[in-house]
Design a protein around this nucleic acid. Structure first.
Lengths: 233, 233
DNA sequence: CAGTGGTCTAGACCACAGC
DNA sequence: CTGTGGTCTAGACCACTGA
């Protein structure tokens, strides 16, 4: 079990501070040579470290040491930039697309709509310290937000909801599971197809208990740590 | 990108019901031959499906189709057997060890104890429909539970707390992240070293807001889906 | 354009599972 | 004991990144 030894060796170098968060590792061929093994075996070790969240990969660019994960509290209404700022991180959002579309099957089922009902769909890519960490898709019920797309939808939707429409999130139903990144989502995150990911799904309700929108979030799994405090029922 | 095509092909067979939850896939060499490729490439596809939670692996036993994940609500006090029963599943627990030990560094830090303070440590393996799905380690503050180990600690700790000591969970602080299974934990779950996993950490408080114990849970990641409803603050 | 990572081949040996 | 999965080797080609 050579690949476990290699994994431990790299792990130690990270813990010892020889490999610094955000830095790129040497080329695979060089690492393989220095551990006296082949690329296949070395890549097995690297994949393991990726699964543990110690390393991440940028497609065709190489392997990097993971920074601290962002602590993400799904019961907290503050938006992504605020959450990042509170933890001393720099956030940035990029709008991928914003349009009215017939609800996809998944969206219709989540929002309890008849198939093909029109909804807003907003796709955004979010960066943490200039690293792309999550692709967020929002499906929004248009009846609560006439002309939503005339406002800023790149940054905090919660702010636009509140300031333009007087709508305040009050309740959320969330679901967290693991999956892997594929296709456009992987590309947007500069990830290789098949990279491990954390999938967060949210249904959000306003102050009158109306279902308002849903979020589908694909996170680079090393970039996030779900954390919350709950009163038990 | 052959491995993506193979992945999709197997995926379709699962969705079409040709491969049934819990069933074993054909041998890797046979699959590789039938997809006209080598084992290495085939295993790449299988690993991807494992990352997505569609398949799981039992060490040296082969690849199996994943059953529906258990919905796990960290804000719900019902114990594991009850949670499983409510979802029509059969739960079983196996005690791996129960003893008084000096707190590990991690445990001491979580429970805010000076290093090496004595605590109870209980390790359990839990099965869902006879499949081992999670290894749970509890570190318990002994001052609240004199002679705890004389009682049943294999099944529901919450029940023992309540019935023997009048202690009721009232608040929990939880954290969810992804990692990979290694060493004894992997073995107990019949998993290969490096299998992807969901890691849940909980700090539990009683009705007087005293910190009572903490949980460290390593889940086979395809066996669980975190799900909760939260009032926003 | 050089070097790198992504992908793939065609083998091999071993230890273990399960008969 | 047989077959299987776990691990590893020693290459190869291509498309892309980044200088």
């Amino acid at each position: 079990m050579q690949y476990l030894k290699i994994m431990e060796a790299i792990n130690e170098q990270i813990d010892a501070g020889l490999l610094i968060a955000g830095n790129k590792l040497p080329a695979e061929r060089k690492l393989a040579e220095s551990f006296n093994t082949t690329r296949v075996t070395l890549r097995e070790s690297l994949a393991l470290l990726e699964a543990e969240g110690k390393l991440y990969r940028e497609d065709r660019r190489g392997w990097f040491v993971s920074p601290e994960p962002l602590k993400y509290d799904p019961t907290y209404t503050t938006n992504f930039p605020a959450m990042a700022r509170e933890q001393g991180r720099v956030a940035r959002s990029q709008l991928l697309s914003a349009k009215r579309v017939p609800a996809s099957r998944r969206a219709a089922s989540l929002l309890q709509l008849p198939p093909l009902t029109e909804v807003y769909r907003i796709d955004r890519l979010r960066f943490l310290d200039e690293r792309p960490v999550v692709v967020v898709t929002n499906f929004i019920l248009p009846q609560h937000f006439p002309d939503l797309l005339d406002h800023d939808v790149t940054n905090s939707l919660t702010t636009t909801y509140r300031e333009q429409y007087g709508v305040i999130y009050s309740k959320t139903r969330y679901r967290v599971s693991t999956t892997s990144l594929l296709g456009e989502t992987a590309q947007a995150l500069r990830a290789t197809s098949g990279s491990p990911a954390m999938f967060v799904e949210r249904l959000n309700y306003d102050q009158h208990n109306n279902l308002i929108d849903c979020d589908l979030e694909y996170w680079r799994h090393d970039a996030i740590c779900i954390e919350s405090l709950a009163t038990l029922t």
